[in-house]
Design a protein around this nucleic acid. Structure first.
Lengths: 218, 218
DNA sequence: AGTGTTAAATTAACGTCGTTAACTTATTGA
DNA sequence: TCAATAAGTTAACGACGTTAATTTAACACT
C-alpha cells in the first residue's frame, strides 16, 4: 500500500477515478448525503488523498459538473442537424428534459443548487461555445428563428426568448424532481406536462398562424 | 436558571420562538448552513431543548415550511377577488413570483428541495383547501377559465393546464434563484423574463384571438 | 552503494454537526 | 414530607470536512 512515483498519466487516471466515484455516489444519493470518506473508500484510498487532487468538496463537485455540462451539450449537439428550425428547438427541449429526468440528482446539482458564481477561471468551459454549452445552442437556434422572422413582431430580444423557453422546460423538470413524489398534487403524466409546455410556449411566441403542427391530444 | 412548570401557553410561546429563530436563520443563510445549536443559541436555550418540541431538524424544517405555505396561500387569496379571470391568473403568478424572489432561501426549501414525500399526516395543511394551498387556488381559477371556454379547444385537462402555468412561473423563479448570479449567462431583467413567460404562456393556451392585451414592449 | 530530496500516500487530530443518554432542578399533588 | 414529573442542562457518540504530521518509496547525484 505504499506509493510509487507516478507518471502524468497515472496521476490523471487517479483523478478520473475520483471523479467517477464521486459522480456515481452524488447521482445515486445526492450531494449532501455523500461524504469525502465514502468517495475515497469506494476507490480504496484514504480521504486525504482526494485533497491532493481537489481543493475541497466544492471543487470536486464543480469538476464533476463541468464534465456533465459537456456531456449534456454534446448530446444536444447531435440534434442540431435537423433541417427544420422549430423541430430543432423541440428536439433540444426533449433532449434536455430526458437528461434532467434520467439523472435527477445530476440535474439538481447542475441547475437547482445555488453555488458560488461559477468560479470564473476555475471552470474552462461554457463560454458560449456552441460545442460546450447547451444554453448557447438553444440561443443559436432561437436567434436563427428570430432572423427568419417567425416570432411575434412585438418580441425584439432573442436572448430573452431563449431564456423563456429554457425556463419553461426547466420549470417542468425541476418541479418533477423536487415535488414529483408529493401525494397531495394530482400530477398529470410528465410526458403530457412537457409536451404542453413546449406546445404552449411555441404557440405563444411564434407568429400566428403558428408554424407548428399541434399534436393531437388523445 | 432552572425550570418552572409551564402553562400550555408558555409552552407554545417557546415553540413559536423556536420556529421564528429557525426561519430567520434558514432564510438568511440556507438550510444546510444553519445548525441546531445555532438556532438554540439565538433564543438562549441549549440545543437539546429543541428536541423537546420537534423530533429532529427535518421536522422543524417541515413546521417552518407549513407556516410559510399558509402565508403564501393567504397572500394569494387576497387577489382572488379580481373580477377578470385572466387578470386573476396574472396576479396570482405575479404574487407567487414576488414571494419566490423576495425569499429565495424560503422558496428553495419549499419548492426546490426534494424531501421525503410530505409526511402525510405530519402536516395538517395543503389538502387542496383553497384557503391554505396556493396551488389549489391556481387550479380553481384555471378551472373557471376552462369552464368559460376560453382555452384552446384541443386542451381537455384543466389540471394539466394549471400545472403547466405553475411550471412556467416556477421555471423563471427557480432559474433566477439557482443561477441568477452566474456571469456566463447574459440574463435579461428578471421582470422581463417573468412578463414574457406569463404572456407567452397565456397566448399559447388561450383561444385565439387571445383575451389578453399584450403589453407593449418598450 | 549510499544519501538526500521529493512525490504520494497514510494516520491522527481538530472542530462542528445532528442526536441521544444521563443528570439536575423545581414544581406539583398525595 | 416525599415521590413523580416537567423542563431544562451537560456530556457524550459517531460522522463529517479538513489539515498537520508522518511514513514510504522512487528518483538524482555523488
Amino acid at each position: 500500500m505504499p506509493p510509487k512515483i507516478k507518471s502524468e498519466q497515472d496521476r490523471d487516471k487517479l483523478r478520473v477515478s475520483i471523479l467517477d466515484a464521486a459522480r456515481y455516489l452524488f447521482v445515486q444519493r445526492g450531494i449532501d448525503a455523500v461524504s469525502m470518506r465514502e468517495i475515497a473508500k469506494r476507490i480504496n484510498y484514504s480521504a486525504t488523498t482526494l485533497y491532493h487532487h481537489f481543493a475541497d468538496k466544492e471543487a470536486l463537485l464543480q469538476a464533476v459538473c463541468d464534465e456533465d455540462f459537456l456531456k449534456l451539450a454534446s448530446g444536444m449537439h447531435q440534434v442540431m442537424q435537423l433541417p427544420d428550425l422549430i423541430e430543432r428547438i423541440q428536439a433540444l427541449g426533449k433532449g434536455y428534459a430526458m437528461f434532467a429526468l434520467q439523472h435527477p440528482n445530476h440535474y439538481r446539482m447542475m441547475f437547482m443548487t445555488p453555488r458560488a458564481p461559477c468560479n470564473q477561471e476555475i471552470t474552462r468551459i461554457q463560454q458560449g461555445n456552441t460545442e460546450q454549452d447547451a444554453y448557447a445552442q438553444l440561443k443559436h437556434v432561437v436567434q436563427k428563428v428570430f432572423e427568419a422572422g417567425l416570432f411575434r413582431e412585438d418580441l425584439a430580444d432573442s436572448e430573452l426568448i431563449a431564456q423563456t423557453i429554457w425556463a419553461g422546460i426547466h420549470g417542468v423538470c425541476s418541479l418533477q424532481i423536487a415535488l414529483g413524489q408529493e401525494g397531495w398534487i394530482h400530477w398529470a403524466a410528465i410526458e403530457e406536462r412537457l409536451e404542453l409546455m413546449q406546445d404552449a410556449m411555441l404557440q405563444g411566441l411564434l407568429k400566428q398562424p403558428a408554424h407548428i403542427a399541434v399534436k393531437a391530444e388523445k
